[in-house]
Design a binder for these strands. Sequence first.
DNA 1: TTCGTGTATTTTGAATTCAAAATGCAGGAT
DNA 2: ATCCTGCATTTTGAATTCAAAATACACGAA
Lengths: 232, 232
Amino acid sequence: MDDTTDLATRQDTPPQPRLRRLSLYEAVAERLREMVLEGELPPGSRISEKRLCETFEVSRTPLREALKVLANEGLVELLPNRGAKVTEVEPGEVADLFEVMVELEGLSGRLLASRAGEAEIAEIRELHQRMMAHYRRQERPEYFALNQQLHRRLTEIAGNAVLLELETSLTVKVTRARYAANLQLGRWEESAREHGEILAALEARDGEALSRAMREHMRRTGDAVIQGLGGA
Amino acid sequence: MDDTTDLATRQDTPPQPRLRRLSLYEAVAERLREMVLEGELPPGSRISEKRLCETFEVSRTPLREALKVLANEGLVELLPNRGAKVTEVEPGEVADLFEVMVELEGLSGRLLASRAGEAEIAEIRELHQRMMAHYRRQERPEYFALNQQLHRRLTEIAGNAVLLELETSLTVKVTRARYAANLQLGRWEESAREHGEILAALEARDGEALSRAMREHMRRTGDAVIQGLGGA
DNA sequence: TTCGTGTATTTTGAATTCAAAATGCAGGAT
DNA sequence: ATCCTGCATTTTGAATTCAAAATACACGAA
């Protein structure tokens, strides 16, 4: 896209692996992921390669590579010789998903308490306060975005790469389940309060309390989502 | 491989999604996974698409699709415009891996105790005894294979699809770390004893004890592997 | 009418081709 | 001698082509 920066990047990128132009298949995968998450491609719907190729204006090769990526993320299912379909959101599987997420959050909390430095805690506090400001103003999209960012940052600070990777990929499914459940419901207030408890436990560096609070937060989110799906 | 069964499978496979001929890229991915796990493709080594295509006698398309699958499993790294390389086995990441696995095993144990029926327990007992027979005869490969099968079956019985999926994919990494650590060491006896405790807790349907035993088993395996890698 | 069979069409799987980026190397300037 | 610079070669990224499988449909028999 921006080829005037070649000169500048040429010698800087090898050491810093950040910031590169995406492959076509990555771009397609990203866009496709969005479409699935937001229900633009509804669960269960068959994906016609030809149609999508026309939509994205790419050939089938990068599209098929992107589909393989999405398949590994569990967003689409690849049926041999019969194309791909968007996976269904089964309430049972969503329950399983949160059951696992609760454990991972618990681990995250325990690690956090022992590994977060003062600087990190200050950073979290700041994110928390910004988020709460949006809550008071009832700005949902901004709140939600910061919420995601905050949770991600917490896991980053926990300092376990495998955990971070797992939470990232499972969060995609969680987000999808939220959309499917149309979860803009009444949990806002409760959720905000839980966030307060999480911050408090972090500031107190109380590993057990933090772990409990994060587990509980995830558990309740799960309950709300599952209820929204008409599950148990 | 066996194309004489086409006639038989033609009408049976649609209802039962089991048992289908693999796509070329799946076959390639499987073989490639083996090669990485067993160190035939050493960590850090660059992968030449052309060479591998010649080895497998396939074109680049299915090979590249397979590489994408392996990349999502974390076995290879895709460098844009510069091909793929086998990921390194970093002791730090292996430590992270086991830290997560311990939690998942704990969950698995808790679920197992409440969900395993008599039939399942009997099945596990039988697997356990077969495994122990191999232990007594000091037949390592057979022991190891049954060990894998038993652990997988335990997670299956735990009845959480997401957990099963996660453990499956993480087990691939665990296996790779074991190979890298050359772990055919002295933990055999200890490990066998731990398996006894697991079975006992399962038979007693003691969720807490089972969870603890499975966590502990995984923790110690991790310690041994990390030690074998020359880590902490 | 309904069901089954065979054929035409569409869609997917894999190979090939074409283009762009990266790598390696030779020659020349400092 | 060392370090640029530019070209040739190799390797990767993406489009296209070809083949095989699945689907849709029309026809004919029961």
